[in-house]
């Protein structure tokens, strides 16, 4: 409930330069339950065009659930999500057309093991956008160049390292030319050596102006690349603000506790 105030008051807006632009995603009192367990307990948040919004917080606090509700992989129990000014569709067809404009990157990469890297990246354009094969392949190749894996195009996922697989997964999502990219703990399943290469790609994307919602434990990334950080705990946002505030001068006990537990010393 603190969240609603922060987004509207003047001092906060000065620290949130990109809030001047349109809100690409609006979460309005979102509630999601699994049986007796409430994963999201009335969460409100805005994501503006070109912003990198990072969701941080302990495991089980609802961050991933938030992301999965955004593209309809989970259905809300109450509240609304608005995407580009329209309420999130409830029917499959409507959801599908909205999903085309959102890219999602999963913690476990979820590359299709029976397809090569190139085919993985081309799959969206070919099957969903109904592009001609040659054109889809061209776009796929361009995306692989973008993430620095042009030479891995003919390789199957099993021949790639975790970091390489995740970069291919990013390329696969980018190939759809989405308006927003959703990252669900993109580096949590990676070896420390390969985390860097994935974060570099994400940083480059951010610098190009991509709207991104990132669930992450990589605090340095959130600090350096994030425009806005929301701290989750037990299904609610306990604090949100610019990285400088969250990491250097958190205003709530919860946030301080969480960062303290992580050994965050700035």
């Amino acid at each position: 409930m603190i969240a609603a105030d922060a987004a509207g008051s003047a001092p906060a807006r000065a620290e949130r330069p990109k809030a001047a632009g349109p809100a690409v995603i609006r979460y309005l009192d979102v509630v999601k339950r699994y049986g007796a367990f409430t994963a999201l307990d009335g969460v409100s948040l805005d994501v503006h065009a070109g912003e990198v919004v990072c969701l941080i917080g302990p495991s089980g606090s609802g961050k991933s659930t938030m992301l999965r509700c955004t593209n309809g992989l989970e259905m809300l129990d109450a509240g609304d999500i608005e995407f580009e000014g329209m309420r999130l569709a409830r029917d499959e067809r409507g959801l599908r057309s909205m999903r085309r404009r959102m890219g999602m990157v999963f913690q476990n990469f979820e590359l299709f093991p029976h397809l090569t890297a190139l085919q993985n990246v081309a799959e969206g354009p070919r099957t969903v956008l109904r592009m001609a094969s040659a054109e889809a392949d061209r776009r796929a190749q361009a995306m692989l160049v973008k993430v620095g894996l042009a030479d891995k195009a003919p390789n199957f996922p099993s021949a790639l390292s975790g970091g390489q697989q995740q970069r291919v997964a990013i390329a696969r999502a980018l190939a759809m030319e989405p308006d927003v990219m959703l990252f669900d703990e993109p580096t949590s399943a990676l070896d420390p050596e390969t985390i860097g290469e994935v974060l570099s790609v994400m940083k480059a994307l951010a610098e190009e102006g991509m709207t991104m919602v990132v669930v992450t434990h990589e605090m340095s990334f959130a600090r350096r690349v994030g425009d806005w950080v929301a701290v989750f705990d037990a299904g609610r946002i306990v604090e949100e603000g610019p990285p400088r505030q969250i990491f250097d001068a958190p205003t709530t006990e919860r946030t301080r506790d969480f960062l303290g537990h992580l050994g965050w010393t700035g």
Binding site: N71, L73, E92, F106, F112, E123, G124, A173
Partner: peptide, 25 residues
């Protein structure tokens, strides 16, 4: 399940996800 979710996140219908991702595997 993650495979189907990844396919649907790209915008595929359930039928497409089945045909292109699940069945080959």
């Amino acid at each position: 399940r993650g495979q189907v979710e990844a396919a649907m996140a790209l915008g595929m219908s359930r039928a497409q996800a089945l045909r292109r991702v699940v069945v080959p595997q």
